[in-house]
Every structure is written in structure tokens, then in C-alpha cells.
């Protein structure tokens, strides 16, 4: 019997012996199997800044995992060898059921687990069970996603999540359809849900030359973030590098990132960053009140942290939004 997956907006109708569009949720004998549950294909220890999360436990190590599969098909995917394959196609599969995953994170001195690299939406059950166990031993749960998920499953998952960096790939439905194989509205809904459910939220926008670098669109996106998510929501503009099926475009020029950052700050966002550009002034956090350097960064490395222990500017005592302790 065919089944209908309700997890993401695709709502795939999956006949027996086939998978959803994500390649990893498979119908076996009329039951949908989460085939990569406890079977990650990538495990690394990353700094928090690599996620990127700049306002959540800065400088702490994060045990980061991913399984095969994804429910989007971005032409510029950075992890396509992982995300655009099913479990049966992977050379490397580790066995790490939730209790083992928690042990691995603790053994390696990590304070958090990040579900990342591909899109953890497609290994939802593994995230949920691992996150519940992680919570019990004081580990934080971080969800790095493109946010293409239905509202109710996300709302349930938010109960065990602590932070997310969610991609907002463009403020344009046509871009989502043509470049990512998705749609914009569910992603906006997901961002609002994270905010409503109290999960610490940062947003990343990868700027691709000629495709989503229009300043008027960036302005509209920044205003939407300001109005719907709050002016204190960190926004990361990230530099595109040609890869996978999008090798015909050049890397994003530095001036484009500078202009985007300025446009978003003009729209009222207070913490706007530039990523994938080493040593850029936009890597660091400044007080929106008096411009004091709060956290200096070079790449993923923190060069100085001047925040007070309770997350305030040392000069003007303004509270800086984030989860600092």
C-alpha cells in the first residue's frame, strides 16, 4: 500500500518499495521507514561559529552529524555527495543510535550536538530521539536547516531544540522553485515557528551573483525579518563559491556582500554578518548602541570576547540578544 508522508510540504505519495523525494524515507510493506535513523554518514567536531551561530555559546565545540538525503535539491549544494544520495548509495555509514551519539558527544568534550550538513528534516525521528536524550544530560541541540518542513512536525520538534540557523535562500518564490526545488512560503512559516517556540534563531542568506543579489529583494527580506522575527535576529550573508551544478557563476564579489550588509542594517537589523570572507569586518559582533567591539572573529576563531558574563555591552550595559552562558 502506498503511503503519504506528512513531514515536509512535498507530501510525497510513496508506493511500496520506493522512497520519498528525500531518498531516505522508504515505504517497506506499507510502512514508512526512516532508513537513516542512527546511521549517520558524517560526524565531525566543529566550532559553533562554523554553523554559523554567533550568539549561541560562542567558541564552544559542537558534535556535528548528518545522514544521507535531503528534501531540497539546490543546484549549488555544498554537500551534494551526502544530500543528493540515498542511504543505500553511501560508502560510509556509521552506527550511532541516540544513546551512542550522546556518549560520543560527551567523550569528545562537546556541549552541543548539531544536526546539520544535509538537512536534518529528513532524519527527523533520529533528531527527536537524540535531542530528548541530549537534553537529559545537559547537551544543547542545534538544528541547521533550510526550513522546508510542515508546521506541526516542526512545532513538536521545537520542544527539544535549543538553537537553529535556518537558510533563507532568497526572498523570492521563483528562486526557490528554480534553484532549490522548493517554495518560499513554508520556509517563512518555519522561521516564524522557531521564533514563536522560543528556539534561538539565526538566519543565513547565501548571495549568488545575478540570481539573488538584487538589493531591493535584500531590502524586502531584511524588513520581513525585522518585522516578523525581530530586529535583534542575527542575519548572516554568506559568500557563494561555484560548485555542483552551478559552476558557471563566479564567487560573490566582496562589494556585493558589503552592500547587502549595509542594506540590511539600514532596514533596521542590528546584527548583520558576512561569512566565507576571512577577516571581514562583518565577521565580528558590535554593540548597536555605541559600536563597541563585543566579539572579534577571524574565520571561525574568536580573537576577543568583551561581553559581560550576562551578555551585555561592557561600555553602555545594553543587553545583547543571544544565549551566552
Amino acid at each position: 500500500m502506498a503511503v503519504v508522508c506528512e513531514l515536509c510540504p512535498r507530501e510525497c505519495v510513496i508506493p511500496e518499495g520506493e522512497a520519498g523525494d528525500c531518498r531516505v524515507r522508504v515505504n517497506i510493506d506499507g510502512r514508512l521507514r526512516a532508513s537513516t535513523y542512527g546511521r549517520p554518514s558524517a560526524m565531525h567536531i566543529d566550532p559553533m561559529e562554523k554553523k554559523p551561530l554567533y550568539h549561541f555559546h560562542p567558541g564552544s565545540p559542537v558534535f556535528s552529524i548528518a545522514t544521507a538525503g535531503c528534501n531540497l535539491h539546490c543546484l549549488n549544494c555544498q554537500n551534494w555527495q551526502l544530500s543528493q544520495r540515498g542511504g543505500e548509495e553511501m560508502e560510509q555509514i556509521y552506527r550511532a543510535d541516540p544513546p551512542q551519539l550522546i556518549e560520543l558527544a560527551k567523550e569528545n568534550g562537546c556541549e552541543s550536538i548539531a544536526y546539520t550538513y544535509s538537512d536534518p528534516i529528513v532524519f527527523y525521528e533520529y533528531v527527536r530521539d537524540s535531542s530528548e536524550l541530549a537534553r537529559q544530560v545537559g547537551l544543547h541541540n542545534i538544528f541547521i536547516t533550510a526550513g522546508y518542513i510542515n508546521r506541526e512536525p516542526l512545532r513538536r520538534l521545537c520542544r527539544v531544540l535549543d538553537a537553529t540557523n535556518t537558510d533563507l535562500k532568497a526572498f523570492d518564490d521563483r528562486f526557490y522553485r528554480e534553484v532549490n526545488g522548493g517554495t518560499l512560503k513554508p520556509v517563512l512559516d518555519a522561521l516564524v515557528t522557531f521564533r514563536e517556540e522560543g528556539v534561538w534563531l539565526e538566519v543565513t542568506n547565501l548571495i549568488i551573483p545575478t540570481l539573488n543579489d538584487d538589493l531591493s529583494m535584500i531590502r524586502r527580506m531584511a524588513k520581513w525579518i525585522r518585522d516578523e522575527l525581530g530586529e535583534g535576529t542575527p542575519l548572516h550573508f554568506s559568500r557563494f563559491h561555484p560548485q555542483y551544478r552551478m559552476r558557471n557563476l563566479p564567487p560573490t564579489p566582496g562589494e556585493t556582500l558589503d552592500r547587502a550588509r549595509q542594506e540590511a542594517m539600514n532596514a533596521g537589523l542590528q546584527y548583520v554578518y558576512v561569512g566565507n570572507v576571512l577577516g571581514h569586518v562583518g565577521n565580528s559582533t558590535y554593540c548597536p548602541e555605541d559600536g563597541t567591539l563585543l566579539i572579534g572573529r577571524v574565520g571561525f576563531h574568536i580573537t576577543e570576547n568583551n561581553l559581560t558574563p550576562d551578555g551585555r555591552c561592557p561600555s553602555c550595559n545594553r543587553p545583547i540578544p543571544g544565549v551566552w552562558q
Partner: peptide, 23 residues
């Protein structure tokens, strides 16, 4: 066939998913 082989070997999981219904 490749999927079932790896499932039987324990390299993939038969864990039942949430969020679905029979068509």
C-alpha cells in the same frame, strides 16, 4: 535490492517513521 541488503546487514535502519498515513 541494494537497500534491502544494507537493511538486513544493519547498515540502514528499519525504524518506523513518524508523520505519515496510508494512502
Amino acid at each position: 535490492e541494494a537497500f534491502k541488503t544494507r537493511l538486513d546487514a544493519g547498515e540502514l535502519s528499519g525504524h518506523e517513521a513518524l508523520w505519515y498515513h496510508p494512502k
